[in-house]
Amino acid sequence: MKKRLFISLLLTSIISQAQLPDIWGDGDSESDTEREHYVYFSSVSSLDFGYGYTQSFRSFKKGVPSDYLAGFQAPYHTLHFNFEYGFKHGYNWFIWAGGSVYIQIADREEQLRDAIPDYYPNFVVKQMDQLSSEDSEGNEINADRSPVNWSFGAGYQINKRSFAINMKAGMSITAIPNLQTRATLKELNTNNYHELSYYVLDNPISNGLGINAALSIRYFFNDEFGVFIAADFNRNWYDWEYEEEFYNLFTGESSSTFYNYNGFLDFYQIRAGVSIYL
């Protein structure tokens, strides 16, 4: 009961202070002066929830290890949220912060399986294991999670009756989990089997820092609800250090090679969802 009362009071407080600008009005009312007053000096916020469909591209050359490290070729489904705070001209200028959670992860094992023959033509992949529990030193890692994108910046919105064109730009971080992967290879023309392992050495999660830009079209049903469609662009730069270990299962001989892998990933996302105006 107390909880309900608290939520009611909180919502009432938020709504009473929101002072929504009449951004979809016809500009013909008698209270133009008054509206202009709070259009200039009041604020309004919006909260978007939506679904996104992402296609990613990379600067990395295709093959081992970029197929393992990036693993982004297949489209991703994302859940998206976005908060905007209009601070001037009735939402013309605003600041924003948003995020996307990738709810479908590309099958990196299959991508690595396809890429290995290009680099190791004398071997056939017999088995793939994705070992996310340990790094090359045997330390326990927890990389069993979805990639996440965070972004923030500023934007400008052009309002026209019930529609608005919303443009924004800013910075972004896309966190990608790193997984240890082991492939069992059979050497052609011999009875020898080998293990090829990849370990990313920096962290269980790689954070790529970059830029973000988006264009949205909004439609307002009323002062409180609307819908939007948006196109997003994200470019994130990564600096990976990883170990490639090749192990002969019969002789026990192993060799390790350490690589630095720098490049960027581009994410193109189309989003759609609902907006709540606070």
């Binding site: 056939v124 017999k126 059979k186 052609l188 023309n189 011999t190 009875n191 020898n192």
Partner: peptide
């Protein structure tokens, strides 16, 4: 003959490193 990706019945000649 284990020269390929999977073992096969040998004919009359097999690579010595891939015999089973």
């Amino acid at each position: 003959d284990n020269a390929g990706g999977s073992p096969a019945t040998a004919s009359d000649t097999v690579l010595a490193d891939a015999y089973a």
